[in-house]
Amino acid sequence: MEFFLVQTLNGISYGLLLFMLSSGLTLVFSLMGVLNFAHASFYMLGAYFAFQVSAKIGFWPALVAAPLLVGAIGMLVERWGLRQVHKHGHVAELLFTFGLAYLIEEAVHLIWGRSAVEYRVPAELDGPLFRIIGSQYPIYRGFMMLVSVTVLVTIWLALTRTRIGLVIQAALTHPQTVEALGHNVPRVFMLVFGGGCALAGLAGVIGGNAFVTEPGMAAAVGPIIFVIVVVGGMGSLAGAFVASLLIGCMQTFAVSLDWSLAGIKISQVAPVLPYLLMVLLLIFRPKGLMGTREG
């Protein structure tokens, strides 16, 4: 029972982390029609920047500085890269971000090397948060959940209650009208793209030390968040939320269960599960969990 509870909490905290990634991706996709292939690379950058900053000044400044830095890079990429290829269509934009993912990974190789760096959980957040019977639950997991929930609620409030949020929402469906009303839509695009990247960067800051900070982390997480976007239904935030928690819990449970089926352990199958889920969903419900559009 306590195993189940702890694993559920772990699954939810991982799922929330995934949602921090997939929500930015989804928002940018619905707003600009661009699937940012380099999204997970910004996650990785967040972790590496946090490693560098926390080594110099400490974890708390890094928690703020790293996402801002990543967001700034994202804005530069949008302004000087994506906007240039926009005229060639969405495939060109996707390819541009694909190339960018390559570049970021290679830059990380060059600067920080090919093996993992020692980005640790800060001492004040290290240790158990509570114990249930035999199992203990780490503080840091709780901290991760707190950060993700706070940020996500803030973003939700900002999108629904503030002026800029309303402009963004309007630009999602009617960019021409919003432009005609005198709003600077390219700047809204740049802000949202940068915001999505900053969110990915923040996920990197809190995920990089909970898991591991290495050059392969983008390539490991990237496909998972793309699967989440497909499973949730392209462009659906609610779908991405459900799919993130689902896959987060599924992964966590699969890794920790030692049941076996036909000689293969569940934990061995774990890496395949999200993709299997995607395949099954595509066969039986091609629109995705909450998707509205097909094609």
């Binding site: 699937l35 793309f226 595509l282 094609g295």
Partner: peptide, 15 residues
Amino acid sequence: TKRAGTTFALISLGI
């Protein structure tokens, strides 16, 4: 090939 465009790209990556 059930889907086209960006979704096709993501599914091919997943496969």
